[in-house]
Every structure is written in structure tokens, then in C-alpha cells.
Design a protein around this nucleic acid. Structure first.
Lengths: 109, 109
DNA sequence: TCCATTTATCGTAATATCACAATAAAACAA
DNA sequence: TTGTTTTATTGTGATATTACGATAAATGGA
């Protein structure tokens, strides 16, 4: 079906999956890293930085924007993207709660 | 194309994407949480715990096993799955390095 | 106004993912 | 051996993802 049965999972589980899915493509990982590196907000030279076509980058940016992890400010003919640090913190919280499951666990099998 | 251009990204970027992709489905998140919760290793009552058909669970388990995050021990007719804590730590390291990009960053835009 | 620049959107081809019914395979019990 | 239980595999339909050429839309400058 290509369609996950989100109804049967908890909000927390769906949230982890939701964010993780966004990081499930190296281009989006690279875009986020680049936006963090270039402290000042940067626009479409992301296309030059990453080796993908402009429509492809635009598509990835749209997904990240939809998640709320980045914001885009229109500046003349170009758009300046940057990380939404508040949202990043929220996401990080959710992901870390998941990743830290191992603390408090003993060995197995 | 439905095919990511992994060649143009760094190993670290691809690794984050690789793990994140696995967490990109709530069923796999739920399976891992369940395996952590049931400290003793657990077999196919994962199917009962999660509300998905047996072949579907088997498929998700296969992916997690392929990643190395879980191990399966055959015990008679059933298979006992458990978290591979060592691999989990490796994965966590990779993910946290990515998630902690924000430390050391100022505000933007 | 007309053109150049930049980004977004559309359309589409190739591939991947998700879910499950049907069935096979493996192991044990009677 | 025959049946039972448990898990894996196969096959398939529905949908999602990735990538990009072509084009539209927006803005500023000549």
C-alpha cells in the first residue's frame, strides 16, 4: 500500500517517525548541516553546495519547511533559508527521548 | 527516480540518512521500544503487541536486522529478537552528532 | 515595458515502500 | 510420518519518493 497505518501508533511514535523520515535522505541531512554551518542565512547557493538540480533542492527545502525545521525569508528575487532553532529543539527532544531508551537497560539474550 | 544519489554525499551524511530511514516508520519505532521494554528477549508476540499482520512485522524485523540494530536467536520453532546494544550505541553516536549541530550556533535571520 | 535572475511548480519516469494473502520452510510433538 | 506451530518468503496492489526538464511566477533593473 505504501501507506503507513499511523492510527495504530502513539503520537510519540508517529512523531519520531515523522522527523526521522525527513532525515532519511542525505540531501536533507546535507542541507541542514549547510544551514547550520553558514551561520548567516543562506539562499539558493544550496543548489551549488549540494550536487542536485534546482527543482530537486527546492522540493527537499519544501519538505523541511513543511516540517517547520527551516524558515524561508523572501529577499528580492531570492529566498533566504535558515534553521528554526526553536523547532529544532522540539524535534531534538522528541528524537533524544527515543534514542535514550538504552539508558536504564541491561544486557539481553 | 525514487533512488537517492548517495555518491555525492559524505559517509557521515549517508549514515545518518540510513539509520533515520529505519526510524521513519512508526512500526519500527514501536518494535524497538517494545524490545527495550521487554527486557528479556521477545519473539513473535511483537505481532500481537503491534496491530499489523505477521508478514508485515516480519518485513520490518528484517529491515532492523539488516541494519544490525536487532538480533534474532532461533529457539525451537520460534525466534527470539533482541536489541544489539553495541550497534545501538554506534547508531546513537552517529545520530547525536547530527542532532547536536545546534550547540555552538547563534541565532539567525 | 522588456529582460534577466531566482525560486517554485508541474509533469513524469524510475524506483522504493507498505501491507497483506498465500504459501513455504523449519522445528517439534504425537 | 503426519500434523501443529511459528516465522520467512513470494507475489502483488496501492501509494510514496526521488530526480529533473520544462515552465511558470515573482522581483528588480535597464
Amino acid at each position: 500500500m505504501g501507506l503507513a497505518k499511523t492510527e495504530i501508533f502513539t503520537d510519540a511514535q508517529n512523531e519520531v517517525a515523522y522527523y526521522a523520515k525527513a532525515f532519511g535522505h542525505p540531501a536533507r541531512v546535507a542541507i541542514l548541516q549547510y544551514l547550520f554551518k553558514i551561520n548567516a542565512c543562506v539562499c539558493g547557493d544550496i543548489v551549488n553546495e549540494i550536487g542536485l538540480a534546482q527543482p530537486t533542492i527546492s522540493q527537499h527545502l519544501k519538505e523541511l519547511k513543511h516540517l517547520g525545521l527551516i524558515k524561508g525569508n523572501v529577499e528580492g528575487t531570492s529566498v533566504c533559508y535558515c534553521i528554526d532553532l526553536e523547532k529544532w529543539a522540539t524535534m531534538k527532544n522528541s528524537m533524544e527521548r527515543f534514542l535514550n531508551m538504552d539508558l536504564a537497560r541491561k544486557d539481553c539474550c
